[in-house]
């Protein structure tokens, strides 16, 4: 009975989606807000990468929500995951090739991650992408040597401070007579590293937060005891 109901529901949903897809005209959808942003973003925000102008400028509140979702997910996981017993066995270290590879990759990944974060307002990329690369940099040694101790207090310090910097930057705008999350410091020259006002600061905070959060999350998951 329940399977039948699920089947009917799924079938109906698929039919509805297909019918809608057939109704939607192909090609030129209306882009009211998008068109306006494309015209004005370079002057208003000063970020050469318009995606960044949208992510941190026009829809900064959404971005704050997104990083908070990641934080909430990490906190929820921390509440739910079991603690590791002291004597629980771990996987053995990987072979020398992997260990050396991980050690070699670490500085390169950190460099690439920071480059992508700091150039987020100029070229494709930004805090989310760079943050993930940073997290990978710190997770790679853990894969090669599962016994490596993880500095969770340090990670949560970076995570908390970076999140606070993001919000405080927004609050400074509010307290100086603007609106919450309004970009400050002028727009600068389009295309230079020091442009787009406070957006690079926001992206740096965002990147560090995403990196620390994801690294901590992956480390916790890897650290959780398995049944075997």
């Amino acid at each position: 009975m329940r399977n039948l109901a699920s089947l009917l529901f799924a079938g109906g949903l698929a039919f509805l989606l297909m019918a809608i897809a057939a109704l939607l005209p192909f090609g030129h959808p209306p882009v009211l807000a998008g068109g306006a942003i494309l015209e004005q973003a370079a002057d208003q925000v000063g970020a050469a990468n318009i995606v960044t102008a949208v992510v941190l400028g026009y829809r900064g509140l959404d971005t704050l929500g997104e990083i908070t979702i990641l934080f909430a997910a990490a906190a929820g996981l921390g509440l739910v995951l079991g603690r590791r017993r002291a004597g629980a066995p771990r996987d053995p270290d990987a072979g020398p090739v992997l260990r050396t590879g991980a050690a070699l990759m670490f500085p390169l990944l950190v460099l690439v991650g920071f480059h992508i974060i700091l150039h987020g307002h100029l070229t494709p990329g930004g805090g989310f992408q760079g943050g993930v690369i940073l997290a990978a940099a710190f997770f790679l040694p853990l894969l090669a040597r599962p016994g490596t101790p993880v500095d969770h207090p340090g990670l949560s310090l970076v995570e908390g401070t970076a999140g606070a910097v993001f919000i405080v930057t927004g609050l400074v705008a509010l307290l100086t007579g603007g609106e919450f999350l309004q970009p400050l410091l002028g727009t600068g020259t389009l295309g230079t590293l020091f442009s787009a006002g406070t957006l690079p600061i926001l992206y740096l905070a965002l990147g560090l937060k995403v990196g620390a959060e994801l690294a901590g999350l992956l480390a916790r998951l890897a650290d959780a005891e398995t049944d075997t």
């Binding site: 509140l61 704050l64 908070t68 934080f71 908390g160 606070a164 609106e179 919450f180």
Partner: peptide, 17 residues
Amino acid sequence: IALTIALPFLAAFLLPV
């Protein structure tokens, strides 16, 4: 009024620290 969104978030971020 935006503070009612921002301040709880800020406090939540800083709580573990």
